[in-house]
């Protein structure tokens, strides 16, 4: 039972990482191979702010999110706009190139050593409550709650606000969207900015829950992607469910043998891919 709780809480973290990846794919059909490394940039930014100015982590997080938002906007204008127009495959090539660049710039600046925010977050990261034989990590709860809030927020944004509706319209058919007066380019830039900001948020949680180094990113990308695929591409609640299934699989794997932690998650992912439906909540034709 404890295993299940741990897995669900871990799943909340993966869902948070996966939101941005899923949003960019849903709106632009782009899979951002630098997604994990962008999350790690968020982690390093918070780490630098906390360690240089000794400000509390939550304040650093509030400062980092707008920075990531702007970075996402810049990334769209400089890199993705041109890549997207060049065809389906080019965004993969350029975002993979970007991943290499980010990892190695981080390596050059911060060395390959592990960093962590654990020491700056006091008891938040380590304390837990016991409840009828269950041990529930407070920080895990906070992560899961954040993931749910972000997912609800995205859902609300996409279905109730004007720019959210424009985003869905553009995702359905960019040409028709342009005909009715939507600036597809601005919509894409906004989607990228949101996705990068959420990735940065995921990175902040990453920095508190574990140690990280410049090569942490690819693993985060893979986990986020697995969560999205297991859940069935595109639906927000699928992403949450996918994250939870992945988290539970990993925790069960670690229970069998600590070395199986990552392996079990991969195997569940491959099993879902091999299944006829190819995703737990997959629905054909659904984009965002």
């Amino acid at each position: 039972m404890n295993v299940l709780v741990q897995g669900v809480l871990l799943g909340g973290f993966y869902a948070l990482l996966a939101c941005g990846l899923s949003l960019m794919f849903g709106v632009m059909r782009i899979i951002n191979l630098a997604h994990g490394d962008i999350a790690v940039i968020g982690a390093y930014l918070v780490w630098v702010l906390v360690n240089q100015t000794s400000m509390p982590p939550w304040l650093a997080a509030l400062l980092v999110l707008p920075i990531m938002w702007v970075a996402g906007y810049v990334m769209y204008v400089l890199l993705l706009e041109r890549s997207r127009r060049a065809g389906q495959l080019v965004p993969l090539l350029t975002t993979f190139g970007l991943a290499i660049v980010i990892e190695n710039v981080l390596l050059q600046i911060f060395s390959p050593d592990d960093h962590s925010l654990l020491s700056s977050t006091g008891t938040l990261a380590t304390s837990s409550i016991s409840f009828g034989g269950l041990t529930i990590s407070i920080f895990g709860m906070l992560t899961l709650a954040t993931a749910v809030v972000v997912l609800i927020g995205l859902q609300f944004f996409l279905s109730r606000t004007t720019s959210g509706r424009q985003m869905r319209a553009t995702a359905e058919d960019p040409d028709v969207a342009e005909l009715v007066g939507i600036n597809a380019r601005a919509v894409y830039a906004k989607a990228t900015a949101i996705a990068v900001a959420i990735a940065g948020l995921g990175g902040i949680f990453l920095a508190i829950r574990q140690t990280f180094n410049p090569s942490t990113g690819p693993t985060q990308l893979i986990f986020a992607f697995e969560a999205v695929v297991i859940g069935g591409f595109g639906s927000p609640w699928g992403t949450l469910l996918g994250g939870i299934v992945l988290g539970v699989a990993q925790v069960i794997g670690a229970q069998v043998n600590p070395q199986y932690f990552v392996l079990f998650g991969h195997l569940v992912f491959l099993a879902v891919l091999a299944s006829p439906r190819g995703g737990l909540l997959s629905r054909r034709g659904r984009t965002v």
Binding site: R29, L33, L221, F225, L270
Partner: peptide, 24 residues
């Protein structure tokens, strides 16, 4: 049989997972 069901970016990262699994 599994991987060629995937397109584009899904194939790209799917293959990455395969490499990770073989490595592990």
């Amino acid at each position: 049989l599994i991987m060629l069901r995937l397109r584009g970016g899904q194939f790209a990262i799917g293959m990455w997972v395969v490499a990770e699994v073989f490595g592990i």
